[in-house]
Computed example of a mutant assay.
Amino acid sequence: MEDVITEAAPPSRLLEEDLNNFTQPSPPLPSPFLLFPHTQQTLKPNLLIIAISSPSLSLFHNFLTPQTLTASLILPELPLSNPNNHTLDIHSLSSNILIAAVRNPIPDTRAYSVAEILLSDKIRPESVIILDSIQPMNHRGMLSSDEAVAFKLESAVERKMVNGEKLLDGLEYYPSGSVVDGVGAAILGRCQILKIRAGLCVSWPQFDSDVVFLLKDLLKGLKEFDFGLSGDEVFKFGRSKDHVFQSHLYI
């Protein structure tokens, strides 16, 4: 006969997800919102550039000034006194080009909410370029710290454009089996829903001056901008975090 006192209790007949039914759900987070320092208006640029990676922010740093600031995207769950609350600042590079600088990391759980507000009735671009980095765990293949590489993904509308008219002309497509996540993927997905021409460029290494010059060459069609970069100016983005990393994933 079993000892009912010392024997381990039988497993619960309730599944773990059933036990969560007795837990009070967390209140939903409020939606992000756009804050315009001047008169609120609908922005309709020909091109919206989303700078997420450190090299892309370095490339445009001379243009990201208080004078060019057009709007800021705010996450309400962060205190207004926190300088990191300005998760994304939108600057006007010209009458036809806007750049959204993602200066601080955006949680994956908030990525689509940010994309939905960024591409809404207040901002209606004709085309979008997203500049992001390759996350090593998401890439299928070998990544070398000695070679700067970049790949692209496109929305269906952009995919139909002929060579020579594409936003990221000259780049190869991201290898099959590799994935992109985070706010860059969310914005590309939003462009797909809204049928906007969009190209997502992912580059490696994440912190490297060679990537800055690679992006500069990629965006040479923006002839109205003189990036004027030298090696010394971007050296602070050199091999500081991933200089010995290699990724080789097998499927």
Rank of each mutant, 00 (worst) to 15 (best):
2 E>F: 09
3 D>N: 15
3 D>Y: 06
4 V>N: 13
5 I>P: 00
11 P>K: 12
16 E>V: 14
25 P>T: 12
28 P>Q: 05
29 L>P: 05
31 S>G: 00
32 P>A: 07
48 L>T: 10
50 I>F: 03
52 I>N: 08
53 S>W: 05
54 S>Q: 09
55 P>K: 08
58 S>P: 00
59 L>N: 07
66 P>M: 02
67 Q>Y: 03
71 A>L: 04
72 S>L: 07
74 I>P: 07
79 P>W: 03
79 P>N: 07
84 N>I: 01
84 N>A: 06
88 L>E: 00
88 L>C: 10
94 S>T: 11
94 S>C: 05
95 S>V: 00
96 N>E: 15
96 N>V: 13
101 A>I: 10
106 I>R: 01
118 L>P: 02
120 S>I: 07
126 E>R: 15
126 E>D: 12
145 S>W: 09
147 E>K: 15
148 A>W: 02
155 S>N: 08
156 A>Y: 09
159 R>H: 06
160 K>V: 04
164 G>Y: 06
167 L>F: 04
169 D>M: 01
171 L>A: 06
173 Y>M: 09
174 Y>A: 04
177 G>I: 05
182 G>K: 11
183 V>T: 12
184 G>C: 00
193 I>C: 02
193 I>S: 12
193 I>K: 14
196 I>W: 00
197 R>A: 03
197 R>L: 02
198 A>H: 06
204 W>T: 04
207 F>I: 02
210 D>F: 04
210 D>C: 09
212 V>K: 09
215 L>V: 09
222 L>A: 02
224 E>K: 13
225 F>T: 11
233 E>D: 15
234 V>L: 00
237 F>G: 08
237 F>Q: 11
238 G>E: 11
239 R>G: 10
239 R>A: 01
242 D>M: 13
243 H>V: 05
244 V>C: 06
249 L>E: 11
